[in-house]
Design a protein around this nucleic acid. Sequence first.
DNA 1: AATGAATGAGCATTCATTCAT
DNA 2: TATGAATGAATGCTCATTCAT
Lengths: 202, 202, 202, 202
Amino acid sequence: MVYRATPLTESKKMECREKLLASGLKLVLEGGFGNITIIKVAQRSQVATGTMYRYFSSKGELCEDIFRTATEIELSKVAKTCQQPGTPTDRMNQTLTEFAQRAIKGRRLAYALIAEPVDSMLDETRLQFRRAYANHFSRLIEEGIQTGEFCEQPSMISATAIIGAISEALIGPLSPENCDPIESQKLTHDIVSFCLRALSAK
Amino acid sequence: MVYRATPLTESKKMECREKLLASGLKLVLEGGFGNITIIKVAQRSQVATGTMYRYFSSKGELCEDIFRTATEIELSKVAKTCQQPGTPTDRMNQTLTEFAQRAIKGRRLAYALIAEPVDSMLDETRLQFRRAYANHFSRLIEEGIQTGEFCEQPSMISATAIIGAISEALIGPLSPENCDPIESQKLTHDIVSFCLRALSAK
Amino acid sequence: MVYRATPLTESKKMECREKLLASGLKLVLEGGFGNITIIKVAQRSQVATGTMYRYFSSKGELCEDIFRTATEIELSKVAKTCQQPGTPTDRMNQTLTEFAQRAIKGRRLAYALIAEPVDSMLDETRLQFRRAYANHFSRLIEEGIQTGEFCEQPSMISATAIIGAISEALIGPLSPENCDPIESQKLTHDIVSFCLRALSAK
Amino acid sequence: MVYRATPLTESKKMECREKLLASGLKLVLEGGFGNITIIKVAQRSQVATGTMYRYFSSKGELCEDIFRTATEIELSKVAKTCQQPGTPTDRMNQTLTEFAQRAIKGRRLAYALIAEPVDSMLDETRLQFRRAYANHFSRLIEEGIQTGEFCEQPSMISATAIIGAISEALIGPLSPENCDPIESQKLTHDIVSFCLRALSAK
DNA sequence: AATGAATGAGCATTCATTCAT
DNA sequence: TATGAATGAATGCTCATTCAT
């Protein structure tokens, strides 16, 4: 009798894949991509190292998938607030504020996703995602230009600059290690104001 | 004949150190700090691995010195244009424009210096340099606030955001691989405009 | 077929551990603990260097285990004859004689176990074992003091001195390289007599 | 003109040799023979590493000479008290007591000289010295046998056993880390008593 | 004679990947 | 399919020794 992938085995297979991704993500959270080891990921997933290679062709692919998974969640959140009803200014304000707040909260992950390098392969993936972020922001900027709220500007470049500005402010030298909520709220507000000024100045 | 540290031997010594730093820098250019290996650095410098340890106490120190050397040059250039005569706006314009142009030219190195992490030790050094950059920009922003050219704003946060915006725009998804001079000039101009708007908007 | 830790694989695993310990012990015999190298141990065991780290967390642990294994055997033998029936004098006589004879046979190992230092970690272990030896002798001495066979004396110090006297006599300058059985039997007898005199003199 | 080793240069040469030996001895005192490095010895002597090789053909020879120098001093002290006027018992008592006290004081050095292994070459040297010690003790024991103070016994074996007993007691598990003077005086007394009992028991 | 920079073999340790079971 | 023991190349670092100056 021929072996057939039944729904059951399919779902089981997925379960295992998910488990591996989840363990990997946890490790990234704990210590960045540098903290990922096939052995560690396998152990946390209660799976043999060899098994990992059933689901991912190499460590690099696993890392890429962890990255993709984590980023897609964040990306969908950005997309959501970008597309809400409201004026572009309001939506941009909300999107950036929440973006920044999430980054502060999940500082470690944010760093790993935004800045920490792993592989040239992963760098490629990261670039794609940054482009995806930029696209969302860019569309919103264009809407704002249409309504006259934002000044004429190359939307893609502004979008990119915004991502950079926020990332740097949150990850760079000012980053509030202590995560003092008041402090970080002020930081968020200031950096978002900076961006909005750049968008709307005549 | 008594051995003496002659000018010749002294210069040779320096030559060796320089050679090691140069080889290291080249490797960083080719593949980031992750590309640095004692063996590779030594081989490229036509020197035994042990020799490296005559000039640098550890791999980390070598990396730090490569980093420091490369960054100090850049920092001094920023400092120079920041302190030129002229209105804060003009000076900021020029500083950012040149900063951006240099970053475009030495894209790979810029990435390695600005974004790529290696060690926690190096991260510390990088943070110091970013703070140094930010300080230069910050002072200039405060001058601009005094003259009324720039609006009231937390100068350090704005400075940081500017660094992020430029870094991202030049290193991130838009970065012109081909270094088309016209293209990159436009990019530079747009990103600098973005920053100046953020600084001066009322 | 599901992978399972079968008795076969289990025994193989043990075999490997034993093989590594045995190779290590052989190397100690040939040149002391200083002769132990991960590479050498692995090669002799027909195993990759990495494999060693499956069974021992570090070189130090391997050394300690080699030491412990070899010493525990000896210690148990001493314990056994110490606790036999008979007068303290008889038991001490037999214990020391056999202790000395074993040391003569395994001269090199005896030296490595008793005297050669490797690590502060191992030194700690050695001290524990020497104390264990001393404890056995000490108890026997105290019994002898009770029965009046041995004179009043600080039993622990005497025990230690005995160990030293025997070790030195067997390992030191007199040591019969050639292991001439008659010669070494006489040596054993003389040194044991020395110890017994010290114990029982009024 | 032919170069001639004048008294001046000769003495200078000796000075340098002495300096190297002294630095080496200091390093042994600080951390045993394992603490000796050509570079360290040279630095402490304010001399280049290459210079060391003018006076000693290898590290091993340097170590041996350090060992020899240190041991000869001790050996001459033993010889002196051994040959004093007085009954063999008295002289033995004094010699052993002082021997033990010196060992306690210079615990680290004593350990390095008596037990710490370095090289097989050095081991050979150590054996020679132990034999030298044993010879001194042996002669004294024979005198004691002549006078009837000590019982009939193979003097060389007893001498060796004495050295072992004292070494072990002072270096082994009982060793007073804290060098409490009262404690160590008692230890010295007990161990010397042990040896004298063994020598004189009928 | 003296120097000390250069050498390079040697070390312990890690970890992505493979493959017999 | 799943397992996990085995692999072995690679890494950073040390240090006795040499040799051009």
